[in-house]
Every structure is written in C-alpha cells, then in structure tokens.
Design a protein around this nucleic acid. Structure first.
Length: 226
DNA sequence: CCCTGATTCGC
DNA sequence: GCGAATCAGG
C-alpha cells in the first residue's frame, strides 16, 4: 500500500482526533502501526501523549557542565549498528485464514470413514464417545472486525472522519468500528476542537471534593456518552 | 506479558 | 520516503 493523498488525509484526521496508531492502521488497512507512526512524524504531526516522551526530555544535557569543553576526545558512542534479524515479513493484511479444524488424534485410530460405528452405552443409557472421537462445534473464527469500505446507511448524513476540519466539532459519537460511528459536526466553539455544548463536557471546572457527585458504578462496559 | 508512541536506520 | 526493529513508559 502506498500513501495516497486520501490515505494521508485520513491519517491526519484520525491522528489529531486522538485515535491510536493501531486503530488508524486497522482503519487504513495494509499498513502497520509503525508505518502509521512513522508517516505521522514525517508529516509533522506528532507529539501526542506518549508514554515514553513524558519525562524523556530530561537526562540529555550532559551533567558534566564545566570540564574542559575544548578538545573533547568524544569516543563516538556509536554502538555499531546491532545486527538486525532478517525478520520474516508480516503479511500486510490480517489474513483471516483460520483453516477449518479437522483435529485428529494421532493415537487411537477411529473407524472414521462411513460404515457402522460401534458405540458402547454407558450407565443411564447415554451413548459413549468412541476413543479419539471429539465433537466440538468448530467455531468459524470470523475476522475480528468488519469495517464497511463504503458509507453505510447508518452513517449517511453523519459527520464522518473525512468530514472533520478545524471548524466543526470533533466530538465522537459512538465508538470507532461501530457502523454508526460519527462525529458531532456542529460549529466549533472558536479556539476549541468542540462545539460549545461538547466543550462543556470536555472541559469542566474542578469542584471541591465535597461537591463532586461520584459517578455511579457502571454495571458493564464503558459509558456510551452522548 | 500487554499496550502505547518515539526513534533509528537499512532499504 | 518508507517501515521493521527497537526502545522505553504505563
């Protein structure tokens, strides 16, 4: 896959609407999350809350402040490029390929091909399973997630990822991957990424503890904020 | 272990 | 320019 204008545009919008590199990579398809991150950086978009970058900014300035700045031997800390493993190429696409399981037990040969199968009957009259026999319903193991390539009915008229710009509210409604996932799309509160209403959700004044209403425990799943 | 983003560096 | 390998924090 190559970085067409369209894909770059999608990357941009997903990146600054806060989706993770993994999610973006899944959405685009045919690229790894590394590719997404690499591209994002090359595009100049970068620096979102990174686990590593948090305090990594420090520790760089050599604490050896004074010490004869002239003629520093500087023994080139080049660690001599570690030998990179060949690394088998990962298939670009998820490749479902679950392959129908035809599990056989190598031991205990069973009279498999047609013909009368002899079974013993256990106490109570249940039919005993023959040795080597196993009748688990084979799970089809479908692809993890199917994303409609083209606009679906549910999303018609909704603000999609590709509709985002600096003037419309980026507040997500629903969740990425759901068929009707879309964005608010109202006019933004100038200077904010959200409309006035959603700014009210996104930015809240810190209240004294005694005035905070503890959120009720959620029985299951995350909040579906709307 | 899993996840995340950042960075490096051979291609 | 690209992205796998690697790093490093949570």
């Amino acid at each position: 896959m190559s970085w067409t204008d369209e894909r770059i545009e999608t990357l941009r919008k997903m990146w600054d609407s806060g989706l993770t590199a993994t999610q973006i990579a899944e959405e685009l398809g045919g690229v790894s999350r590394n590719a997404v991150i690499g591209k994002a950086h090359r595009l100049g978009l970068a620096s979102r809350p990174s686990p590593v970058k948090a305090n990594a900014a420090e520790a760089k300035p050599a604490p050896v402040a004074p010490a004869a700045p002239a003629s520093v031997p500087a023994p080139a800390p080049k660690p001599a490029a570690a030998p990179r493993a060949p690394a088998a190429a990962t298939p670009p696409t998820p490749a479902p390929a679950p392959a129908p399981e035809s599990d056989e037990e190598d031991t205990a040969p069973t009279p498999r091909p047609d013909g009368p199968v002899l079974r013993s009957v256990g106490p109570g009259g249940f039919i005993r399973q023959n040795p080597g026999e196993q009748a688990p319903p084979i799970a089809p193991a479908p692809p993890r997630r199917l994303v409609p390539a083209k606009p679906s009915k549910e999303i018609e008229g909704k603000t999609s990822l590709l509709d985002l710009n600096d003037r419309i509210c980026k507040w997500p409604l629903g969740h990425p991957g759901e068929p009707d996932f879309h964005f608010c799309g109202d006019k933004v509160n100038p200077g904010f990424p959200y409309c006035v209403e959603h700014c009210g959700h996104a930015y809240q004044a810190q209240l004294p503890r005694r005035d905070r209403r503890p959120p009720p425990p959620l029985p299951y799943g995350g909040p579906r904020v709307r």
